[in-house]
Amino acid sequence: MTRLALVGSGPDDAAFARIAPRAGGAGIVAVTDGAQAASNNVIAAATLAELLETHSEAIDAVIVQTPTNERASHIEAAATAGKHVLVKGPLGGSAGEARQTAKACAAAGVVVMAGQIDRYRPEVGAVRASMDAGQMGQPGLVRSHRWQPPPTSDARLDPIRSGGIFIHELTRDIDIAAWLFDGPPDTVFAIARGQDPDRPDAAVVHLGFPDGGMAVLDVTTALPEGEAYWSLQLIGADGAVYADDQHNMQLLYAGGSPAARLTNTGDATVLAQLEAFVEAIGKGSDPAASIEDAVLALEVAEAAMASAASGRAATRTEDGYVLV
């Protein structure tokens, strides 16, 4: 059994506890930093440092879901202690910080998996599977929308702690685009909007890939409180895939205009992510969502921030992204 510790609280605490036994017989055996324990039989430590000091032998791996600006130190501490690491969300607050983390983790020789939760959505799995089966041909366009209500936690609301819309949110969509195009974008352009210019709640990132590839990624955290909306399209030379919440809506008639209800996919996403992590640990292999992918997503997000601030496009050079 892979013994897991939840470091920091996240929206998937309960799901992890519920599905861990299905992921190669893993289990949540410890929690820190306020993560919700599913039973009284787990170790509850105030901090990761305390957990590693007092119960290091009781855990094999950690799931880090602390605020973005605290993540790098937690990842490095766990890796240095010989624990495998699954990181929920971006690897850190900046690409530079993430590169340092990647270096430290490489020296530790443990499995570090950048969460990239959206790769494990069943819908995205179907998109990727169609590509891998050769049905799509050369990808031409990736188009995504992810609309969410405003964050509720203090850490998410604070752009310093969360990284804001570009780091905390758009790294997810950038990772999907780079993954589907199998490489980094060569051009980045972005626009951000919000009542407070320092805290935009809507952004569009427009990416160019080699051979004419393109991606348009649209994210907002300004939906009214309630459910989110998501869609992803891939248009390839030979095929196209459309994954869209609209298509998966069911209708409820209870007087007046009907309401739409999304047919949800249960725990499938979190389970697939955890299975991939546990499998990589078991095999001692590099996870598909690598630490390098996470660094790239941060590099592109930073280029997008620079583009949005300057109104200019950025292109990829040997020295990174440069505004033109």
């Binding site: 031409g140 366009l141 352009f189 909007r193 393109m214 991606a215 348009v216």
Partner: peptide, 15 residues
């Protein structure tokens, strides 16, 4: 095949 980002009056964004 083309993708276009639009910056519009009143701060409105289009794609």
């Amino acid at each position: 095949l083309a993708s276009v980002t639009l910056e519009m009056e009143n701060g409105i964004v289009g794609t």
